[in-house]
Computed example of a mutant assay.
Amino acid sequence: MAHGEVLEFEEYVRTRQDALLRSARRLVPDPVDAQDLLQTALVRTYGRWDGIADKRLADAYLRRVMINTRTEWWRARKLEEVPTEQLPDASVDDSTEQHADRALLMDIMKVLAPKQRSVVVLRHWEQMSTEETAAALGMSAGTVKSTLHRALARLREELERRARDEDSDNNGNGGLGAGVPEREERERCAA
């Protein structure tokens, strides 16, 4: 395309852009899709600009390109869709609970001695066998088993203790201590 035609096309887009975008919005309901549609049509029209003998017909040409493009998109989307009798259950993975569990586990691991922590990490997180863990830590397989047993028992105790502490906080006055009436607590929250 010659330099003069490029400038002519740029001027056309600058002056007709709003009207063409309104046409695109009538073709597709989503405003972002309408902008994409117009942009795609402009790119396609740019390549054929010198073939449009009567530039007064450029709007009609461009609208036709938008309609054809929209039809292509619709057909492509239609091929991707598979009709079913029943909608599938939509589930969104919420990893909040998983992150909370991991944070709790990392916190209670602090109660273990370094040797116990090493055994738990290698056996359960790294999924090493007893023999691999023993070799990595320079201890016998029997020592790995007994250390792991004591470490897991200690972790269970700590979890139970924390659960009891949490229950006693929740059964009291929201952890605010005994003797604080509920009305005073509500007033404090409202302030």
Rank of each mutant, 00 (worst) to 15 (best):
K110L: 08
K55M: 08
T130D: 09
E160M: 03
R64N: 12
E185A: 15
H124D: 08
P83K: 06
E158D: 04
E158S: 01
R25S: 06
L155P: 00
E126H: 14
N170Y: 10
L137Y: 02
L7H: 10
K115W: 02
T143S: 14
L7F: 10
V144R: 00
L21Y: 06
V144C: 01
E72K: 12
T147R: 01
L104W: 04
R188H: 07
R183P: 01
Y46R: 06
S129R: 09
D18P: 02
Q39H: 11
V180I: 15
W49H: 04
A190E: 15
V65D: 02
W49T: 07
A153D: 15
T133D: 01
V111G: 00
Q39D: 06
L112C: 05
R14P: 00
S95G: 12
L27T: 09
Y61T: 04
V28H: 02
D18G: 06
S23Q: 10
D54R: 08
D54L: 05
S168L: 14
I108G: 00
D101V: 09
L112I: 05
A34R: 00
A178K: 12
L42E: 03
R117C: 03
A60I: 10
E160D: 13
L176N: 12
A34Q: 01
L148P: 00
E10C: 11
H99A: 10
E11T: 13
A2K: 14
K55A: 09
T69E: 11
D101T: 09
L7Q: 14
L176A: 12
L57T: 12
A103K: 09
T40C: 04
A90F: 13
D33K: 05
D167R: 14
A134F: 03
D33L: 07
R64E: 08
S23T: 13
E132T: 04
R162V: 02
V82C: 07
L57C: 05
Q116C: 08
E158N: 00
R150V: 05
